[in-house]
Design a protein around this nucleic acid. Structure first.
Length: 585
RNA sequence: GUGCCCGUAGCUCAAUUGGAUAGAGCACCAGCCUUCUAAGCUGGGGGUUACAGGUUCGAUCCCUGUCGGGCACGCCA
């Protein structure tokens, strides 16, 4: 059996309604025929509001239109009955046998059940995390990582051709500050002490990198530290530097003193931090197809190229020695500098080049997952795309709100400038990968997340991760005690699965591909977390009410086919979220 | 001050993007282990969807205003 053979009831019914409606009137091309799942069993399994939408156009009351549609509808092999209800809803009831037969598809599709061709192989890029490689990832990056990775999995399952990308900010001033910080720590190891700037990187990881350089090269990079304070006020000799201008002066001096060796240290710290970041993410179950270097945009002349393009299209002007992009022509609040008075391009300039490059790589859709604090950049980036005559609707920017950690019911400190912040690694060590991944995507991503550390660690009914995993482990335990071949269940007679609980579970199983499709369409991984919780809940209830290992072989096989299917879906769903599905707990 | 996002049960959050009687989980109360994992289940109370208008067959969702909260407003990245 191939996947396309799995019936998709919503599209099936939509097609039937389309035929019916076409027989009655000419359909507006913009009109979408939508099927929705009902909330109450008395309303059947699916309902359609098409009659209410057509009522005005036809000049008839909605219930009348509904009946007309039903009369003109081709017969469906899956439907038990169709009813008009309420204000003009059309409710469809699936045959029990239709629901029961669906288990065959689950057991045969296995890992692929839930996947679809919704995305039609369209090329889609998801760019996420993209943290400055200047220190360890913190818990804020963790949420972006979890959401991005889950979304990429979901999109892939929904039939998109997905590319995961990490944009490495390896070109900017922050990297210079890290290089300076590391060199100063290195000098300290050589007994040369210069007051450490307050606004440089304070973390212990900087000292660790300095130590590595010292161990490998001893005094090789000491040079002439007495020139370091040139151009700085005398006070800088006693107290630490703390303004941006002074820090920039220190960086300039360092570059002069180190000459060729500056590149070595710069490259060393970049490699170290990037490696650490990659490792951290890998342990978190997050991997990328492309690590895209900002520096490469400069090296290949793409930044200059992008700015030239804007110039040619007359969207730039020069003022106060700087070059400005007239983004107010494209809906931004104010114009933005792309090239500074000192000749350096701004971060925005490289970002324009980066997005131009993304579009030139031929993606049908590009998704940026950004921290919510970046929302002010959306207008200018989209504005730049329009200025370059690119389609801004191809770029979707998904904002992720911050996660706030709670311990003992109180806010846990998030980040301070002293370098003392909660890292993603610490979070993983405290609550584990599974809980962290699940908690991060439990809420809609554009909502604030209260991350309860105690709850994430607790091995109790309250913890939604354990709740879902426990359902999986329970099925495994039952199947292990049965000790038969699961492949035999594919041929089981499912007619015995006719209790309300069982039929509800079967419908829930049928819904899984729709849940993935909705999550893909809305860029909303939390829908998968909610779906899994509901499936687990219905399973636990079933488990407590019904015995599976019964003497009647036919009944036994039918029930085991059902719980084996549930296990398969729990497994598939948890995999999308990067959460393990343990066989024992 | 200006712009964007948000306001749903005591708490944390959903609600198929305009559909039917707004749903879950905590917490609270009362029950269920001699039986496939009690990390589980069953039942119960709890709401003027911040407030006031408007749009229509129909609004938590769309529009306007008010109140309250978050974020952003650099030739930083």
């Amino acid at each position: 059996m191939n996947l396309s053979a799995v019936p998709h009831f919503k599209t099936h019914f939509a097609e039937l309604f389309h035929v019916a409606a076409s027989n009655i009137t000419s359909l507006d091309a913009a009109m979408r025929i939508e099927l929705s799942r009902t909330k109450q069993a008395s309303h059947g399994d699916y309902s359609c509001n098409l009659a209410m939408q057509l009522a005005k156009q036809l000049g008839k009351n909605p219930r009348e239109v509904a009946q007309l549609l039903i009369d003109k509808m081709p017969v469906s092999p899956y439907v038990e009955k169709i009813e008009v209800a309420g204000a003009g809803f059309i409710n469809l009831f699936l045959k029990n046998s239709t629901k029961q037969q669906h288990l065959h598809y689950v057991l045969q599709s296995k890992d692929a059940f839930g996947s679809s061709n919704f995305g039609q192989g369209k090329k889609i890029q998801v760019e996420f995390v993209s943290a400055n490689p200047t220190g360890p990832l913190h818990v804020g990056h963790g949420r972006g990582a979890a959401i991005g990775a889950s979304l990429a999995n979901i999109l892939k399952a929904a039939g998109f051709d997905v590319s995961r990308e990490f944009y490495v900010n390896d070109a900017g001033r922050q990297m210079d500050i890290l290089t300076l910080s590391t060199w100063l720590r290195y000098l300290e190891l050589n007994d040369i002490h210069i007051a450490f700037p307050a606004n440089a990187y304070q973390g212990d990881y900087v000292k660790a990198m300095a130590k590595l350089i010292h161990q490998a090269h001893a005094q090789r990079y000491v040079h002439q530290p007495d020139l370091l304070l040139d151009g700085l006020p005398a006070i800088a000799r006693e107290t630490s530097v703390d303004t941006d201008e002074q820090l920039d002066q220190l960086i300039a001096n360092t570059k002069k003193i180190l000459g060729q060796d500056y590149a070595y240290i710069h490259n060393f710290v970049l490699t170290e931090q990037l490696g650490d970041c990659r490792n951290d993410l890998m342990e978190f179950g997050v991997e990328f197809d492309v690590w895209f270097s900002e520096q490469s945009l400069y090296d290949n002349g793409l930044v200059a190229h992008a700015i030239e393009l804007l110039e040619k299209k007359h969207h730039l002007y020069h003022q106060d020695g700087a070059t400005w992009f007239r983004s107010t022509d494209f809906g931004d609040e104010k114009d933005r500098v792309v090239q500074r008075e000192n000749g350096q391009f701004t971060y925005f300039a490289s970002d324009i080049a980066y997005h131009l490059n993304k579009f030139e790589r031929g993606f049908d859709q590009v998704i940026n997952i950004w921290g919510a604090d970046h929302h002010g950049y959306i207008a200018r980036v989209k504005g730049a795309l329009r200025a370059l005559e690119l389609d801004p609707t191809k770029l979707e920017i998904a904002l992720v709100q911050f996660a706030v950690l709670y311990r003992n019911g109180k806010k846990a400190s998030m980040s301070t400038r002293s370098g003392e912040f909660v890292t993603l690694r610490e979070l993983r060590q405290e609550v584990g990968k599974d809980a962290a991944r699940f908690f991060y995507v439990m809420r809609k991503s554009d909502q604030h997340l209260d991350f309860d550390l105690d709850l994430a660690k607790s091995q109790s009914t309250d913890n939604p991760v354990y709740y879902v995993q426990y359902a999986h482990a329970r099925v495994c335990s039952v199947l292990a005690q049965w000790d038969g071949d699961i492949d035999d269940l594919k041929d089981a007679d499912m007619n015995a699965l006719s209790s309300p609980t069982e039929l509800a579970l079967l419908q829930r199983i049928i819904d899984f591909p729709d849940a993935i499709e909705a999550a893909a369409k809305e860029y909303s991984p939390h829908l998968i977390a909610f779906y899994l919780r509901e499936l687990a809940s219905e399973f636990h209830s079933y488990y407590n009410s019904t015995r599976f290992l019964v003497p009647d072989i036919s009944l036994l096989h039918a029930r085991l086919a059902l719980v084996a299917s549930i296990r398969q879906i729990l497994n598939n769903g948890l995999r999308l979220l990067g959460v393990s599905a343990p066989e024992k707990m």
